[in-house]
Simulated assay, not measured.
Amino acid sequence: FPSLSWSDDVFLAAQTERYVDLICSENDVFAAIYDREIRGYNLSGGLIMNQQTGSYRPETIFTHGNYLLVEMELVGNDDHFIFVYQRQTRVLLRQLDIPMDVVSICQLQNDEVLLFGNDGGDAKVLHYDIGDNAYWQPRQLPEGKLMNAVSMEGPRFAIAHENGLYAYTYSPNFLNLIRPGVVYQQLCFDVDRGTILGASENKLDEVSPIGQLLNTVVHSDSITSIDIHYTR
């Protein structure tokens, strides 16, 4: 049976949603906290990062190699920024303002990532080069809100959109609506099976990369996040 190894009660009486984002990477856990703080823990629960973010509220976290990327919103404004930290030393390396609210950050190649988000309520994707601290827009996405995005195999990505589920290939630059009309609030890619898991309210679907529905599980409550635990 599972047992609790460690926990950290950051808030004794939280009145609002406090953990905005949480990511597990290798032997570390990083959390974006609503009250303008980034925390990092090792597998034993030891605090390895406690970064106050001042006027910025951290929202989306991503790690790659020696980098820790955090998308933040300027409090009291609608301006968004990417902050890049050195993962081991936690030193801030650079920051850049971006023209959208980032929902997901996905690895593309080497030190390059794709930023998926919304600008004025419409979906947008940006190609961000971490080393050059520069971005560009590789293509336009359909009008409507983007909910989530995940990496698949190679330069391929699954995008949850209010129009349905899209499959996006970066090169050649191709976007295909593979499951129209189904709105997923969360996505996860099963590397072992090569399939997409999508949560739509209280329903969990397993979908092939071409949009074929493979399995469905209905839960009694809404699904807020998905993670895959491999036992072998």
Rank of each mutant, 00 (worst) to 15 (best):
L187K: 07
N202C: 14
D221V: 01
S220R: 01
D221R: 00
D205E: 08
P155V: 07
N215C: 13
I210Y: 08
N202Y: 07
F157T: 05
V183F: 08
N163F: 02
L177H: 06
E206Q: 12
P172G: 02
L175Y: 10
G194Q: 09
I196L: 14
P209N: 03
Q212F: 09
I159R: 07
Q212L: 14
E162Q: 15
N163W: 05
F174C: 07
G198D: 02
P172C: 04
N173F: 00
Y170F: 15
R193D: 11
T169N: 12
I196G: 01
I178L: 06
L177C: 14
G211R: 06
A160M: 09
I159E: 01
S222M: 04
G164M: 06
E201I: 00
H161R: 14
L213E: 14
N202K: 08
H161F: 10
I178A: 07
Y184T: 02
R156A: 13
N215S: 10
I223L: 07
Q185W: 07
A167P: 01
L165A: 03
P172I: 05
L214I: 15
T195A: 09
S220L: 02
Y168P: 14
R193Q: 15
S220A: 06
N163C: 09
L197P: 02
H161G: 13
Y184V: 00
D205W: 00
A158S: 09
L175S: 09
L177D: 13
V191Y: 03
N215D: 10
A167C: 13
N202E: 05
V217A: 13
L214G: 12
G198M: 01
V183K: 02
T195V: 12
A199I: 00
P172L: 03
P155H: 03
P180V: 06
R179H: 10
G194I: 06
V207C: 08
N163L: 14
